[in-house]
Nucleic acid binder design. Structure first.
Lengths: 338, 338
DNA sequence: TTGGTTAGCTAAAACATTTTAGCTACATTT
DNA sequence: AAATGTAGCTAAAATGTTTTAGCTAACCAA
């Protein structure tokens, strides 16, 4: 960066006009508002000079002056988790298409990290934030809202609060999965879930229970909750479940199912002989295998595009306050190797 | 963002001093340089006021004044590819630890997209760029170097040019994989690679050939190249290979192996009965399976940390020109389900 | 009492841009 | 001939920092 950047002033000098005129030309491109009109020929000379000198507007200066950075911040649980990586990619594409740039951060489900990231990103003057909230992050989220920073929650909502959000229809998705296990002949189904109290997890659990109850199956003590960073609890939970004569397992997330499947393979269990399995999110694992499994495919692209569109809409509206928008996406049940 | 941010000036007003003094205090924190010393008590009052008013420095203004944004740009092939997603996560963590923020972009292996992203990111005034170069991106890369923008190449190098880079020891890794197939009894091994001419791909191919040749095996017509976005060529290539009585396959990347394995499963082939398989990068697939496979585990964390450390070193040095640093990382061979 | 040092502070420039307010010179209308 | 309109342009303020140069008042030595 040692080579000095060419500024609007250099162009003005080259052409022999004021910097204001250069600024006007750079903005209004072809079409001049009838308020500030500039001579066709002058405009051409300015554009030529800009091109010749290799002018690129300084975004810091522009941001300082205009208060907009054309940057949006995206905070997820873990960018290396396939689900979020996929969404990140879609967000990136959509944002770039609208001349926005994206900065990412991962919370590891820690409210503390989320709060720091929010501060860092706000401090970076992002124009808006797309956030996957985690447990106990209610206050951090409220802080963002209170300062009227455009915000969209992703994948999860905050109970009892009204924000913009894009989430999956977790309740119905869980019912679909459960029904699929039932239709495969399972009569004793249990769920392996997280102990985190997140809206998506809760709704998945509720949908599961509802489906069981509709089918007249037992709903008592059928949910097992693993601590999010104590996944080694999985082995003993599986043993418990097996001992109880369970014939179907529903995993609440991709990480849980992959961990669970690894454990089951290690134990030498067979699918579906020992268990029928259903889970959320797809994985290469399911296609490169011969065991039967049903899973919910989340509409990743829609997650990304809807979130970006919603945040941009909020950014455009600026302070003009309007009601929040809640978008719930439908999912698709896939049955693999039936 | 409608709520006006509190600035250094507000603090100055509150305390009743000049803005310069506030700036000094905010910088030199506890310790005052002996050039610009400030009264202990005044300093305390300023810090208190800053805290009370909720002051956060404006990064646009700071960037404009200082020419540094504390932002690094990272351009990879595809952030949703597990390998890059993992690296992205490590880069993020390392950068945040040094008070840097990261913006990401994906090229889809298109030189055109890379060039646009470079322009956008430079225009955003990033302090440095970490780039996974793609085919025909030599000129774009050179452009970055020529403007003395700190830059580190990741995963791949540019032939015949000297840049900072962090790459895997692809040559030896490919030899390890090939040797592993040989030691499992393979005598006719073929490789499925990309038609893209990238340094990592080339070195993997070369290591493969070298290992075959060392073992006295045939090296003629043993490499098959798939076009990077015509992965449906995989099915017929596999048929070809099978017809020729091949007993070992080496996949050059994770995408290739996953695609290949899906095809093989679909065809009803068995591993290792029909083929022995080796590949680069690990995947959940390998653990949740019972077929034998050997793969190269890349040191993802090192990729991220070394790249960030190197770019930061270059940023600190500013224009002080120094030789380029090339870091080659060692890999680890994993044999799964032997 | 003068001269010099220094602790503690400030004014103002600089960074690159956007935008407001208004100027000049010419053309048109009355 | 005066008034009005307008095409085409400019000066300057404003955005929030950092940093240079230098000021004032107090203190100390001679």
């Amino acid at each position: 960066m040692s080579i000095r950047k060419v500024s609007i002033k250099d162009i003005a000098n080259e052409v022999g006009c004021s910097i204001a005129l250069v600024s006007f030309v750079m903005h209004n491109k072809e079409t001049n508002s009838n308020k500030y009109r500039v001579n066709k020929d002058t405009a051409r000379r300015i554009l030529e000079a800009a091109d010749r000198l290799g002018y690129m507007p300084d975004s810091s200066a522009r941001a300082l002056r205009c208060g907009r950075t054309n940057t949006i911040g995206v905070i997820v649980s873990d960018i290396s988790n396939k689900f979020f990586a996929d969404i990140a990619r879609c967000i990136e594409d959509r944002a770039h298409a609208h001349n926005y740039v994206v900065i990412f951060g991962s919370t590891d489900e820690k409210a503390g990290k989320l709060d720091v990231l929010i501060d860092v990103f706000i401090n970076k003057d992002v124009d808006g934030l797309i956030i996957v909230p985690c447990e106990n992050s209610d206050l951090s989220i409220k802080k963002v809202e209170d300062m009227k920073m455009p915000m969209v929650l992703l994948d999860r909502e905050i109970e009892g609060a009204d924000y913009n959000s894009v989430i999956l229809d977790n309740y119905n998705s869980a019912m679909l999965l459960t029904d699929s296990l039932i239709s495969r002949g399972c009569s004793r189904i249990e769920m392996i879930s997280y102990s985190m109290r997140l809206s998506n997890i809760k709704n998945r659990e509720n949908g599961f229970i509802e489906a069981l109850s509709n089918a007249g199956l037992q709903t008592d003590k059928v949910i097992h909750r693993v601590h999010h960073d104590k996944l080694d609890q999985m082995a003993s939970i599986l043993d418990d479940i097996k001992a109880r004569g369970t014939d179907g397992i529903l995993f609440a997330t991709n990480t849980l199912s992959l961990t669970g499947l690894k454990n089951m393979i290690q134990k030498g269990w067979r699918i579906p002989d020992d268990f029928h399995v259903a889970t959320f999110d797809d994985s290469d694992v399911f296609e490169i295998n011969n065991f039967e499994i049903s899973y919910i495919r989340q509409p990743v692209i829609q997650f990304g595009t809807e979130a970006v569109d919603l945040i941009l809409k909020n950014i455009k509206m600026k302070n003009a306050y309007s009601a929040h928008t809640r978008i719930t996406l439908a999912s698709k049940l896939i049955v693999c190797n039936k």
